[in-house]
Nucleic acid binder design. Structure first.
Lengths: 276, 276
DNA sequence: AAAAACTGCGATCGCCGTTCGCGGTTGTAA
DNA sequence: TTACAACCGCGAACGGCGATCGCAGTTTTT
């Protein structure tokens, strides 16, 4: 009916959250999803998301790759668990002030901190929405912050939260790139850019590069505890614009994304904001 | 000298653009980078970025995987070439009106169209900046559009262009996701979201989901030739905010209040280790 | 004519995600 | 008590991946 291509078999229980942690009949599992998650996060914190492979996680747990499939349907589930765990690190116990913008900016600041602590969050592909239990709590909290604005339709609120999170991901990526020592590739890219700019065919680019730094623009200014003053300014402005009550058709709707997913700032055909 | 870790060997010529297309002494190559690029783009258009593997491209060209390494240093170079080729599809011959915001919004619209034509652009990891020859031309054009604003420092202009492109990528992703039939995973995610919302523990979320659609919100409204009215509105607003002359990098006109998130690495009430 | 630089590419390495199937364990029903 | 289905741990293996090595053949330079 609604099935796209292959139809038979149970298409249910696709997500980790829909599958039971363990069966009821067999022997007690020697491990649990929490341990897998911990190991995966540890690997990712150290070596990026690419370091999280079924094999590596298994090694970390002192077992074979095949064993993990008793706890998880595949690598994707591992990422789901990681993202939700990181989301859980965002403090949702902070009392709301009643000012939606201020509350959401503060929430964004805390989300940003988590991104700095777990840089791999920026690497998670925004292809699919990843919302687990903690993600739901996060959304509920954000919606609670937006409750004073009862003129705004719910969909628009979710849209604002999604956009806000996308912005946080973008900024976090910039800050992280500015913070880390540049890759060989990043250095080469910077060299190439300056070399060609010097060539004379791109005068405006040359000038722009001249009075800017080589590194990621804005990165340093956005850093700092709580995100720095510039972080707050950018986030506040964007949020204020998004929440401005000027939508006549009221057809505003957008994805509600968890703090981590959300479309990240991608590789637009030409983006200067790269690396240093 | 400045090398980070491993020092020997030539660390130069990391990017494709720094390496000559072919040597001068040997026999004429049977293929060229343009053909590789074409094949790779063809594969990506059909099957996403994941479909672009050294092996598949080689098969497309009727040769073995090892042969490609005469034209390209690795898969990464292939992506560089693809991105630059796509960037080249953006029409930079459009005359500028003199209104920076209008000109950049129009440019963003054309960029958006290219993203719709080559959906894999959204999948390219934003980890590293990828600017080739066409990317440079794109930047120069954008800076030319921004020339009337000579009060703005060059770095701020580049930052604005970067942010604009990030926004285009984000919106393009949303539109593409709304356009395509949902994945099994996406459907499952939506089901999970609604199911839990119905549970009663997340009343605001339930309400927000109630007056929104199940699918990716905003996608439809953002679609259409030229990006649709909503696309222009969003992009224009964001851009106007970014270009607002209130001293981004210059005099330290500090913002009123940074978020009061307080402690540097503080919150984390919930650890990832907790079992289900 | 010799040497050097270059191309094409089969064979191969190590890593990846995932599946199969076996022996052992546990809960439940006959 | 017995039988059996459900479950756990996991070695082995499959196919695909990016990348390297080394050799035979070709073209240019000396």
């Amino acid at each position: 009916m609604a099935g796209t291509a292959e139809g038979d078999g149970t298409a249910d229980e696709v997500l980790v959250w829909d599958r039971p942690e363990r069966g009821a009949r067999g022997p007690a599992p020697e491990r649990n999803r929490g341990q897998l998650t911990e190991a995966a996060v540890r690997l990712a914190d150290a070596g990026g998301l690419a370091a999280v492979s079924v094999r590596q996680v298994a090694r970390e747990l002192g077992t074979g790759p095949a064993s993990l499939y008793r706890y998880v349907a595949g690598r994707d589930d591992l990422v789901d668990l990681m993202v939700d765990a990181a989301t859980g690190e965002i403090d949702l116990g902070v009392a709301l002030t009643g000012d939606p913008v201020a509350d959401l900016v503060a929430l964004a600041g805390r989300t940003h901190q988590v991104h700095l602590r777990h840089p791999w969050l920026v690497e998670v592909a925004p292809e699919a929405m990843r919302v687990g239990p903690r993600g739901l709590a996060y959304l509920e909290y954000a919606l609670r912050a937006l409750e004073p604005l009862d003129g705004l339709p719910g969909a628009a609120k979710l849209e604002a939260v999604a956009a806000l999170n996308a912005l946080v991901v973008m900024v976090s990526g910039a800050v992280l790139r500015a913070r880390r020592a540049p890759t060989a590739r990043q250095a080469a890219q910077a060299r190439y850019l300056h070399a060609v700019a010097e060539g004379g065919e791109h005068p405006l680019l040359a000038q722009a590069l001249a009075d800017g730094t080589t590194e990621e623009p804005g990165g340093a200014a956005l850093a700092g505890p709580g995100g720095g003053p510039r972080f707050a300014r950018v986030v506040r402005r964007a949020l204020t614009g998004l929440l401005a009550p000027d939508a006549p058709g009221g057809s505003g709707r957008a994805t509600a994304a968890p703090p981590d997913t959300g479309s990240t700032a991608g590789p637009a055909p030409a983006r200067p904001g790269g690396s240093g």
